[in-house]
Amino acid sequence: MHVEMLTVPDCPNGPVLRERLILALAGRTDVKLTEHVVDDQAEAERRGMHGSPTLLVDGHDPFAAPGTAASVSCRLYRGTDGRVGGAPSVAELRRVLGTPATGVANRAAGRSGQGRLAPIEGGLRAVQQAVLRSFATTGAPPGQAELEAAAEPFAVPAARVLAELATEDFLTLDDTGRIRAAYPFSATATEHVVQIADGPTVWSMCAIDALGIPVMLGADAVITSTDPVTGDPVRVEFTGGKTTWQPATAVVYYGTRPDTGPAAAVCCDYLSFFTDRATAEQATGQHADISGAVLDQTEAERLGADIFGPLLAAPAP
């Protein structure tokens, strides 16, 4: 099967569709995924692009009504629940791609495919980015004064913004309202340790979050973790845009429990590094209530980059 993504330059919904495709295609080995940037009407007509982003499956657009004209305009999709968005949902992608649902794609690392970049409105993105920058530079969440400074241009209290960010699962708070985690960072120790070059040592919420940190920061880093089955170490080194995995057979399992709630509660404990596919499958076989997929190194790196790469690249208002 050949799956193509067609987008105009700098399409804001391109990364959203890419992230959802990665989740929808996790574990598939029979699919070739390519991407093309289309910048004029003639090419849109030649390639069969019906707005940006367009998905083609073996040359056919499964979401376009018959007779839809080619276009380089922004495209919107209406889901089965009636909601309109910039890309099909993971469930809808699985349907047109013939991929069985695993439950993983409907969960957490990407907020059910909605992405982790908070909206600009109401100071959400400004405060989110202030939190992320603090973790990246100090290894800890920002103080109250820094949070208020980020929220002040929007004339809303920082506590209100934090509460909304928590409700939408961009971060988690403890019972006192203090930041416990801001994906990809954790304020408390986890098994996933990321040493940022020329920066602090931080903890990530899960394996995918760890892989997203160097890309988000545009920095070299060393990730160290442990195979939950064997106790053996797993190390991923980012240097100059290249990665080295030790052992070379290491993989990531992307799993979730069939519960509702934030990512921290339903899946972060099941997104782990393993020394090889056999240990990943052994671990998941011990938990009948966990569903998911084993991701190879390329799939895991790409998912981390797609989810977290844009978080600080987008300008704060």
Rank of each mutant, 00 (worst) to 15 (best):
P88I: 12
Q128P: 02
E92R: 05
Q129I: 09
L56R: 12
P88Y: 05
L97I: 04
A91K: 12
R116V: 08
V131M: 00
R125K: 06
P62W: 11
I120V: 15
G103S: 02
A44N: 08
A69I: 08
L97Q: 07
Q129T: 04
A105C: 08
V96Y: 05
G51D: 06
R111G: 00
G79M: 04
S52K: 11
A26K: 08
I120W: 07
T54Q: 00
L97W: 07
G67C: 12
G67R: 10
L25E: 05
G59D: 03
G110W: 00
V37S: 08
A126S: 14
V57M: 02
T29R: 15
N106F: 02
G51N: 04
S71F: 04
E35A: 14
S89M: 13
G98S: 04
G86L: 09
A109M: 13
R111P: 05
D40W: 01
P53D: 09
A64T: 08
G115P: 07
V57F: 08
Q128A: 01
A108F: 11
T80E: 15
V31A: 06
V104G: 15
G110S: 15
L93S: 07
E121R: 13
A44Q: 00
G123K: 06
L55D: 04
T137G: 00
L93W: 01
G110L: 03
A91L: 11
V96S: 01
L132E: 05
A108N: 14
G98H: 03
T68G: 07
S52C: 06
A42G: 09
A87N: 09
C74K: 14
G86H: 09
G59Y: 04
A65T: 14
A118I: 04
R78V: 14
D39R: 11
V96H: 01
L56G: 06
A65P: 01
G115Q: 08
D81P: 03
V127L: 10
P53V: 12
D40E: 13
A136L: 06
A101F: 01
R83A: 13
T99S: 13
R46Y: 02
H60Q: 15
